[in-house]
């Protein structure tokens, strides 16, 4: 089976979990290999670019710059996807991603991804399901944080 490693990696990402393996194989074929050396930037915060990346091996830091200082807010590892927001919504990159050590990724272009989604709407449904779940989690987290901070505030008063 061709693209076995890629398909396995894709299957482990929440966004593509329910998608048929034959579709994932096509997706993997449409992707392009991108390798980064330690310290190289994959995406830069604020830049407009429309591709998403799937990590095949290695690790990367997610860095957010705010008010002149930058801090690492997360670390990404194998089978994780990043850049999908910019790809789907054409928004500027919300964070910088930097390779820590040798990083192998698969790049997906917006154009190809949209064509694939148009071709296989069931794939789009699976993807939106997973994105909605993520949004729900984020919303709950936000609500929890708000509740926490208001509790802090009230306790402080």
């Amino acid at each position: 089976m061709k693209f076995e490693a890629e398909v396995n990696a894709l299957q482990r990402t929440p966004m593509f979990q329910g998608v048929d393996p034959s579709r994932l194989r096509l997706l993997a074929f449409m992707g392009e290999d991108r390798t980064f050396r330690d310290g190289e930037l994959i995406v830069r915060q604020g830049e407009t670019s429309d591709s998403a990346y799937l990590i095949l091996s290695g690790k990367a830091d997610v860095i957010v710059e705010f008010g002149g200082s930058s801090s690492v807010v997360a670390q990404l590892g194998q089978s994780e996807v990043f850049g999908e927001m910019a790809m789907l919504c054409e928004t500027p990159r919300t964070a910088t991603v930097r390779a820590t050590g040798e990083l192998r990724t698969l790049l997906f272009e917006r154009e190809g991804m949209l064509r694939l989604l148009r071709e296989f709407p069931e794939m789009a449904i699976e993807m939106s399901r997973s994105l909605a779940q993520r949004l729900e989690r984020t919303t709950m987290e936000l609500a929890r944080m708000r509740a926490g901070s208001s509790a802090d505030a009230s306790s402080g008063a």
């Binding site: 034959s22 074929f29 190809g112």
Partner: peptide, 20 residues
């Protein structure tokens, strides 16, 4: 052989095949 099996299920008028 590989390409035809990869693109199985893709509609005949799709521009996916043209691109890839």
């Amino acid at each position: 052989d590989t390409l035809i099996s990869l693109f199985e299920g893709v509609a005949a008028d799709s521009d996916l095949f043209k691109r890839y």
